[in-house]
């Protein structure tokens, strides 16, 4: 009856292992569902605090929530935390979304001829798009918006000439951000 005993032990082991696995996957499923509920809540506009060590997807949802409300100072540390997770698609999305938010903010500044605050935003947006493209060169939306940000620098003088009373030092500071030649000009 030695084989009977071995069979009994093997069956008990199988039972314990599969119950353990079921418990683990069940726990993960519950956690995933909770995180998804939080992501949905953030997407629908309810602010939910997110732990520093939360999932990258949840961090991204909170980042997106903050970025679309122009809370860049709170959003930037989240980008760093998302980058520390090493989840490349999520990192690229985070960089892209934050750059988009900054570029949108810069555009709304420019619409009312506030050039000073717009310049660093455009510069940071460009940096964000470039890093997103560095991670995923196939992000066409990032290419397109980076192209807009690149031409925006050249668009400043037009606004300056068409605008009313722009302090001359603002225009000067604007051009210091250009690396030698206007980017993209033939």
């Amino acid at each position: 009856m030695r084989t009977e005993r071995l069979l009994l032990l093997a069956l008990l082991l199988l039972l314990v292992a599969s119950l353990g696995a079921a418990g683990w996957f069940g726990l993960r499923l519950v956690q995933d569902r909770l995180a998804n509920a939080d992501i949905a809540a953030l997407a629908s506009g309810r602010d939910i605090p997110v732990d520093a060590d939360a999932r990258p997807a949840l961090l991204l949802a909170r980042l997106s929530f903050l970025a679309t409300r122009d809370r860049f100072e709170e959003a930037q540390p989240l980008v760093n935390r998302i980058m520390a997770t090493g989840d490349t698609p999520i990192v690229a999305t985070a960089l892209y979304d934050l750059a988009n938010a900054r570029l949108r903010a810069a555009l709304s500044h420019l619409e009312i001829n506030e050039i000073d605050p717009a310049v660093p935003l455009v510069r940071l947006a460009k940096e964000g798009y470039r890093r997103a493209l560095g991670l995923d060169p196939g992000l066409w939306d990032a290419k397109y918006n980076l192209d807009i940000a690149m031409r925006l620098v050249r668009d400043f003088p037009q606004i300056e000439t068409s605008g009313e009373d722009l302090p001359p030092e603002a225009a000067k500071r604007l051009w210091t951000d250009l690396p030698g030649v206007p980017q993209g000009l033939p």
Binding site: L14, L15, A17, S18, L19, A21, A22, F25, G26, R28, L29, D32, R33, A35, N36, I39, A40, L42, A43, R55, A57, L58, L60, A61, L63, S64, T68, P89, I90, T93, Y96, D97, N100, A101, L103, R104, L107, W140, D141, Y144, N145, I148
Partner: peptide
């Protein structure tokens, strides 16, 4: 006109659900 943001993705649970099913069947 900027290209729109990319929506934060949901965490995929289908794989976990399948694994849970396999574990329960095993049990």
């Amino acid at each position: 006109a900027l290209r729109p943001d990319m929506a934060p993705p949901r965490i995929a649970t289908a794989g976990t659900l399948r694994h849970l099913g396999v574990a329960l069947i095993g049990a």
